[in-house]
């Protein structure tokens, strides 16, 4: 464990908490892409299948349980509790355009052709594109509430910090996870446009981020 990975995990946790609390307190999921949240729940489910078979550390196990619980709670709030507030006509990204390539690629490019390893690879590739429906929804509505942009900021920051973690681990322990690194770089690149808007608009105190 190093400071970059810890900061990344904390940033990830903060993002998930920001979204969950926002939906719970505003009793609304307007402007939130339910599809992205379902994809994130799928990412955690397929990545953390080793939760009961491999014990790495108390921290690892606890964080996996927390991430799984909170992502399912978010999906529950969007599609069950506050479903009448769910903005389905703006959440129209065709997720099959993400799932088909990701499934295909995880069968082609993996470390071992075993169910657990293919599902892990699937979760890595899926995480890189899981935010697409949310970013698409923002471009479609042309705006995002500032809380939603803070959620996206910490979510994008988490994988950027993981890149620093991989650089650190490469130089200190010769660790290099090619699939995670390539996918993580792609994932972070998808946030660059948002990061620019976030810094130039939201941090200037705008109530909500209006796209140009």
């Amino acid at each position: 464990m190093n400071v970059f990975r810890l900061a990344g995990d904390v940033s990830h946790l903060v993002a998930i908490i920001i979204l969950l609390v926002k939906i719970w307190r505003s009793k609304s999921c307007a402007g939130i892409s339910g599809k992205s949240q379902v994809l994130f729940a799928l990412v955690f489910t397929t990545r953390y299948l080793d939760l009961f078979t491999v014990f790495i550390s108390a921290y690892n196990t606890i964080m996996k349980v927390v991430f799984l619980a909170m992502s399912y709670a978010t999906v529950y709030l969007i599609y069950m509790r506050f479903r009448n507030m769910y903005d389905s006509e703006n959440d129209t990204f065709r997720v099959e355009f993400l799932l088909v390539p990701v499934i295909g690629l995880s069968f082609l490019e993996n470390y071992a052709f075993t169910p657990l390893e293919i599902l892990w690879t699937f979760s890595i590739f899926l995480e890189a594109v899981a935010i697409m429906p949310q970013l698409f929804m923002i471009t479609k509505t042309g705006e995002a509430e500032s809380i939603t942009t803070h959620y996206l900021f910490f979510l994008g920051l988490y994988r950027a910090l993981y890149i620093a973690n991989w650089v650190w681990r490469y130089h200190t322990e010769e660790f290099f996870d090619q699939i995670a690194v390539v996918s993580g770089v792609v994932q972070t690149i998808f946030y660059c446009d948002f990061f620019y808007l976030y810094v130039t608009r939201v941090l200037r105190g705008k109530a909500k981020m209006i796209l140009p």
Partner: peptide, 10 residues
Amino acid sequence: AQGEALHDEL
């Protein structure tokens, strides 16, 4: 070395 089968990252 490429990632070992044991994935220790979240």
